[in-house]
């Protein structure tokens, strides 16, 4: 049985990477073929188009819950800073890194508003 693996490392550049100048205008929504279920604070994502599944930890789950097509990256960043004991800069770096991974794996779509 294959071991779980960290999804696409955030260090890998991609044409889909989040544009940091667009954080206040970049809306995030789940891809149509992705279904998510939360269990005990963690989230399992199933991509029906590829058959792959993914798990998000507690913080990843909080971020995913706000990717409903209504919140911008800046909105989600504000939620993290308000709710968690974390420096603003670190929260933003981690948020952008995770969003990049989710977009690169085809789990999230981003669009401007």
């Amino acid at each position: 049985m294959a071991d779980p693996q960290q999804a696409t490392p955030p260090s890998i550049a991609s044409e889909h990477a989040v544009d940091r100048t667009m954080l206040a205008r970049s809306i995030l929504r789940p891809s149509p073929d992705v279904q998510g279920t939360s269990m005990e604070g963690e989230t399992v994502l199933l991509d029906l188009s590829t058959g792959r599944y993914y798990t998000l930890n507690r913080l990843g789950s909080v971020i995913w819950e706000h990717c409903t097509g209504h919140s911008t990256i800046s909105d989600i960043h504000a939620v993290l800073c308000d709710r968690f004991e974390v420096a603003s800069e670190r929260a933003l770096d981690d948020l952008v890194a995770l969003v990049n991974q989710l977009v690169q794996e085809g789990l999230l779509q981003q669009e401007g508003r």
Binding site: P4, Y54, T55, N57, R83, D94, L98
Partner: peptide, 21 residues
């Protein structure tokens, strides 16, 4: 405001095997 904030951990995404020999 003395509201206690939750502890922070780095958000992570883990990919699992294909949905199985």
């Amino acid at each position: 405001n003395t509201e206690k904030k939750e502890s922070y951990v780095q958000p992570s995404l883990v990919k699992h095997e294909l949905l199985k020999d």
